[in-house]
Design a binder for these strands. Structure first.
Length: 183
DNA sequence: ACGATGATGAAC
DNA sequence: TTCATCATCGTA
C-alpha cells in the first residue's frame, strides 16, 4: 500500500467536502525519531465570511489572514492561553475557510485516542511554528492517504462544539464530522 | 462545575 | 493601553 501525500489541491474545494474526505486520512509529523502518524477521526468546518463561529466572520485581521489565502496551508492559533489549535485552510484565495482538526487515533501497538484539539497538538508537538506554512514534507507536517477505506455510514454529522456564542443559526449547522468506527 | 492562562481584536 | 473574550482540558 502506497502512502499518497495529499496535495494542496485536495483542500482547494468546498470546505465541507474536504472535511468529510479528511476522515481516515493521516496527519504525519516529522520528528527526530522518525515520522509519527495519526489517523484523523474528528474535524470541524468553518466555512465562509458569514460563518459567525469562524475567526473570519469579523473580516480580515492579522491573525486570520491565512484563512483568506488558498487552501493547503496551516492555521495554528492559541486558545484559552494554553492550547494550540491546528487548522488547515481550505477553498480558494479570498474565501476564508478552514477545517479544525479535533481528534485523531494512534494506530499500531500503542493505541491511543486523541479526542480533543488540544490533546492532538500536544501529542504531536504542534505549535505556531507551522502557522501559515504549506502542508508538505518541507514543513515537516503533512497529510497522507494511506488507503484506509471509510464507509459513509460510520461518519456522523453533528453540531460544532463550543460555538454557542455564534447564535442558534450557526449552532444548528452540521459542520462537525466524526468517524465512529472503521469498516 | 470550574479555574488556569495568554494572545487577540476592538474600544477608548 | 486596557479589557473582555475564547473552536479546551484536567481536576473535583
Amino acid at each position: 500500500m502506497k502512502n499518497i501525500v495529499l496535495k494542496k489541491t485536495f483542500f482547494q474545494r468546498p470546505t465541507l467536502e474536504a472535511a468529510e474526505d479528511l476522515l481516515g486520512k493521516f496527519l504525519v509529523k516529522k520528528t527526530e525519531q522518525g515520522e509519527v502518524a495519526v489517523m484523523i477521526t474528528e474535524v470541524e468546518a468553518y466555512d465562509g465570511p458569514k460563518d459567525k463561529a469562524s475567526h473570519a466572520s469579523c473580516g480580515l485581521t492579522d491573525r486570520n489572514a491565512i484563512m483568506f489565502g488558498e487552501g493547503g496551508y496551516f492555521y495554528v492559533y492559541l486558545c484559552y492561553g494554553m492550547y494550540e489549535m491546528l487548522n488547515i485552510v481550505t477553498g480558494q484565495k479570498n474565501y476564508p475557510a478552514a477545517i479544525l482538526l479535533r481528534g485523531a487515533e494512534i494506530l499500531g501497538e500503542e493505541e491511543k485516542r486523541l479526542n480533543g484539539p488540544g490533546k492532538l497538538t500536544k501529542f504531536l508537538n504542534i505549535n505556531r511554528a507551522v502557522n501559515k506554512k504549506l502542508a508538505d514534507k518541507i514543513t515537516g507536517l503533512w497529510f497522507e492517504d494511506r488507503g484506509v477505506k471509510i464507509s459513509p455510514k460510520y461518519i456522523e454529522r453533528t453540531s460544532r462544539i463550543g460555538v454557542a456564542y455564534a447564535g442558534p443559526i450557526w449552532l444548528k449547522k452540521k459542520y462537525r464530522f466524526v468517524l465512529t468506527k472503521l469498516e
